[in-house]
Amino acid sequence: MSKHHIYTMSFAKVYPHYVAKAERKGRTKSEVDEIIQWLTGYSQEELEAQLEKQTDFETFFADAPQLNPSRALIKGVVCGVRVENIEEPTMKEIRYLDKLIDELAKGKAMDKILRK
């Protein structure tokens, strides 16, 4: 079975879309970065280095310093699929991020998004 094409897609190509989606709804790039850092454990400098290297999604999540254990609390539907039912680990991480960005764009408070 071949890998889903998003695994080989550069995270840096999708990142501006996350930021644009947030900014269209009055949120900020720094909030997007905070969400990504919370989820993956990357520092701001490490995140920027990953973007500069054009790291693909699979490597981006595989190399994440510390995936947040609270990410298991992320529930809901993204792209018509319940995130808690996704079996494939890398796809689950990608959809967790998608769900968090959706919540940001919908105006949810950062404390709720970051499962505090």
Rank of each mutant, 00 (worst) to 15 (best):
R71S: 15
L73A: 11
S30L: 13
P69L: 06
I113S: 00
I94T: 02
L39I: 10
R24F: 13
Q66P: 00
V78Q: 09
R27Y: 10
K108C: 03
A49H: 12
H17Y: 11
K108Y: 08
A72N: 13
R27Q: 15
D102W: 03
I74P: 02
T40Y: 00
C79H: 11
E88G: 03
V14Y: 15
E31Y: 09
K25W: 00
K13P: 00
I36Q: 01
N85H: 08
K13W: 09
Q44I: 09
A22L: 05
Q37H: 07
T90L: 08
V81N: 06
L100D: 02
P16R: 11
T40L: 10
E87A: 07
A12H: 03
E48C: 12
L100I: 05
D102E: 07
E103W: 07
I94Q: 00
Y15P: 01
R82E: 13
D102K: 08
F61C: 02
A22R: 01
K75F: 09
E45S: 15
E52W: 10
V77N: 05
T59K: 08
G76P: 04
Q54E: 13
Q54W: 04
K108M: 08
E34W: 02
Q66S: 12
E84H: 04
L97D: 01
G80H: 11
I36S: 06
V32M: 15
L51I: 11
P69Q: 11
K116M: 09
T90S: 05
K13D: 14
I6T: 14
F60I: 03
A72T: 14
V81H: 13
L114C: 06
T90R: 07
P16S: 14
M1L: 08
E48F: 14
E58L: 10
Y18W: 13
P65L: 05
K13Q: 12
N68K: 01
S2N: 14
L47A: 13
K108E: 06
R82P: 04
R115Y: 03
F57R: 05
D33V: 15
P69F: 08
K116V: 07
E87N: 05
H5M: 14
L39M: 15
V77F: 06
Q37V: 00
I113T: 02
V32E: 04
E31V: 05
Q66V: 00
V14R: 11
Y7F: 12
E34K: 15
K21Q: 10
I36T: 15
K21P: 02
K112I: 05
A105C: 06
I86M: 13
E88T: 10
F60S: 02
S10R: 08
Y42I: 01
V81M: 12
T8I: 14
E45N: 11
E103C: 06
H4T: 02
G107V: 09
A22E: 02
I86N: 07
I101G: 05
I101W: 03
G80I: 06
M91T: 07
I101K: 08
K106C: 07
K29H: 09
A49G: 08
I101V: 13
M91Y: 02
V83Q: 04
K75T: 15
R27M: 15
D111H: 04
P65Y: 01
I36Y: 01
H17N: 10
Q66N: 09
